[in-house]
Design a protein around this nucleic acid. Sequence first.
DNA 1: ATGCTCTGCTAAATCAGTTTAGCGACCACT
DNA 2: AGTGGTCGCTAAACTGATTTAGCAGAGCAT
Lengths: 341, 341
Amino acid sequence: MGRNRATLADVARRAGLSKTAASMVLNGREGTRLSAEAHQRVFAAAEELGYRPNLAARSLRTRKTATIAFVSDIVATTRFAGDLIRGALDAARERDHVLLITETQGDATFEQYAIEAVLDRQVDGVIYAAMATRRLTVPPAILGGPVVLLNATSSDGLPSVLPDDERAGLSVASALLELGHRDAIALIGRNRLKEDDPEVSLAARARLHGIQQALGEADVSLLAECFCTEWLPEHGYAAMRTLLNRSKRPSAIICMNDRLAFGAYQALGEAGLSVPEDISVISFDDDPIAAWLRPSLATTALPHEQMGRRAVELLLDGGVAESPLVPMPLRRRRSLAPPAG
Amino acid sequence: MGRNRATLADVARRAGLSKTAASMVLNGREGTRLSAEAHQRVFAAAEELGYRPNLAARSLRTRKTATIAFVSDIVATTRFAGDLIRGALDAARERDHVLLITETQGDATFEQYAIEAVLDRQVDGVIYAAMATRRLTVPPAILGGPVVLLNATSSDGLPSVLPDDERAGLSVASALLELGHRDAIALIGRNRLKEDDPEVSLAARARLHGIQQALGEADVSLLAECFCTEWLPEHGYAAMRTLLNRSKRPSAIICMNDRLAFGAYQALGEAGLSVPEDISVISFDDDPIAAWLRPSLATTALPHEQMGRRAVELLLDGGVAESPLVPMPLRRRRSLAPPAG
DNA sequence: ATGCTCTGCTAAATCAGTTTAGCGACCACT
DNA sequence: AGTGGTCGCTAAACTGATTTAGCAGAGCAT
């Protein structure tokens, strides 16, 4: 790779100046007393030789690599990961940085390995990302330099970037209240494990709080709450069927995520009920599937791209981040209507 | 990041030996005549100091960085990208390498930038990946070193890794034939642009060929073919509705991808038809949605993780790759049944 | 004539490794 | 005693940049 690249010494020689002079000119150093003509010559030589600095050599001296490590537990499995990475990539490029990506797969050995690998390469900072919003403990090895937590928090007081799930819960419930739903709102996706263990999820509890707060303020209580062991379509399907067997049919359903809502749609379709005429449905995440459903599913979007971007900004610009919370915009779609009758 | 790391000189001093000796011992050099005791002392010193080599310094001398560039047009947008990256990440880790990921967004300026960024960092090789299987032209700048094309080919004769869409087409059609479907098989997703322009897609044409070959051998011809401008659920929905308005109802549908099949399911549900009793459905990709559908959708899996892995293997192990094609396994699921009646 | 400052530039050290060339001690052989 | 070979190890060069310290010459005042 890159054999025969011109070095700084080549540039200096061609310009008839010293390496020192060439280095200073190319780095735009202030306060140097090099003549305008010297500048000219260096630039010309660099241009002609197609000179590009060898960053390995530079970083040996400066201890800067213009490289950020993106260490995450799981990059695949969810299509959101790509957005997180893309946002980070964009922000990094704008700052002339590049991303070294590793995955720990939630395995301690891999994590150890990943961290050594990036530290050995002298990265300028680490973005430690979780694919499910949660609390975690960062490996002490990376604390020697800048770290930002992405989609996670820790007790170390490290800067972090999180989606604002509580406000999302609030807006989801409010959307239904505004339409006139009151006494027949059901919730699908309660889950003790997710709600009680912040190392599993922060989203479940926050979303629930938001929903409860909005409903409480309107003096409304839920018609029913369905517990689900996981937030997958099959669980949403089962929950919806249970709900439909009850004496009073709900006028609106809140699902804790879009996959549950997908399952709920399936059960509603089988029961011959239509959304939103018979039942409104609203949810969280804005998985691409939400827009593909018929009718399209109203939901609150996880701002993954924004979050990835913020993480890099926080890491490199050292911003103090007013708040770690990134808003989750409400996507109003066809699955919402006022209650029937 | 990583301040106060012990250097090789520290290790050598503690072992009471020279840097040369320490370097040789730690690199396990053959043919050196250093005593067993010297080995002991170096290993002990390295261990005690928690020594880790500075890879920037090493690669300055050796011109090896143990880093691979993963340059792709688009990392987000499809949930498959994650799998491609994960496979590459795994294979890279097994070989003590790490991935520098960049995205070009199909933009020439970004691409130029991305390539300079990775070449400046002296990567050992480049994986040039496309998110949709297609033919492309690689930027000449990266040809100075090893390159592997992932999910793409080019006219440069570069090694590449591709999914075997033609065989997938073959197995999809064969699966239907085996079940007894013959004169009422319809195809959703024909698309001239994708089929005719290899820079847009190689998959469409290959899948079609495979299907046609299998049907041809069985002396069967398609009942109908629906053209779709894109392969999104809405197009599958529309196509399916069109098909249902014809005089003869199909006994089986082949969709060119799972998203189209998702749309077809929606239209079938609305029409009160059930899968697979009334109509069988089979498709391509194995998007996670395929398993979530009710009934679960039979499809052929894009082996993205395998492909990512193969690309790294090809790049680092220099394998001659018997064939660039990675098999797409058939996932038999509930959407298949013999024709009714 | 001497000393001082300013200008425009460069030699050399430095970063942390790898690699080449070779040194001193010891032994065996003539 | 002199020569040659092996053993066990090291000094120094090298990679390609940045950075520190300082040099030569011009201009000016004393």
